[in-house]
């Protein structure tokens, strides 16, 4: 996983609540056995019409939005399925952070494990960001701060362990494996599996 310490980017805004993982990447793209190349399927049916042409009114298709690495979305982003293909698709497309007022639990877990930063902001900040697409933001992951164009900044909540892994590029499987002795003694003293 690539470490993420700071990020500076303009935003692209999807002002819709409850964007589910089926909208982020439809199930028919899930027959892959790889995690590569899923950016092409990101928001597929919102980005493209049934003939495969880009929908002009979809914010990601705005020429000015092509290189944005921060997505601002409505409340409860990533609800629905557990598919990790959702953060894989967002990352492959080029996003490194998503800002909302709330994230679905599984999506948030999956995002952190792949180096995609979910940023939870208060309603006022969120409303301002929704109303100002394209503004440039700077994220300081270590300080857990979002720096706004007016020079102000807001602190966002982040799990200490998730932040540590993100800023250091830590692979959590390696971390878990270091506990193998504790796991073995647990297995010796418990009727694992019932």
């Amino acid at each position: 996983m690539d470490a993420l310490t700071t990020l500076t980017s303009r935003t692209v805004v999807l002002p819709i609540r409850d964007i589910d993982t089926d909208q982020i990447i439809p199930a028919r793209f899930l027959t892959t056995t790889s995690r590569e190349g899923l950016g092409a399927a990101l928001f597929h049916d919102l980005r493209f019409d049934q003939h495969g042409a880009e929908r002009e009114d979809f914010p990601l298709n705005d020429p000015d939005a092509r290189d944005c690495r921060i997505l601002v979305a409505g409340n409860n982003f990533g609800c629905g399925s557990s598919r990790e293909h959702a953060p894989w698709a967002l990352l492959d497309y080029g996003f490194r952070a998503v800002i909302s007022t709330e994230f679905a639990d599984i999506f948030q877990n999956n995002a952190f494990k792949n180096g995609l930063l979910p940023i939870i902001v208060d309603v006022d900040t969120h409303n301002w960001l929704l109303a100002h697409p394209g503004v440039e933001l700077r994220v300081d992951v270590e300080a857990a701060q979002l720096e706004l164009p007016d020079g102000g900044s807001v602190e966002y909540p982040i799990d200490a362990f998730a932040r540590y892994c993100l800023t250091q590029g830590i692979d959590q499987l390696g971390y878990l494996q270091k506990h193998s002795d504790a796991i073995s003694s647990y297995e010796e003293t418990h009727a694992c599996g019932g």
């Binding site: 990790e84 877990n109 999956n110 494990k113």
Partner: peptide, 10 residues
């Protein structure tokens, strides 16, 4: 509860 593929690996 449901988990992602990285966690399936874990």
């Amino acid at each position: 509860f449901g988990i992602g593929t990285t966690e399936v690996g874990h």
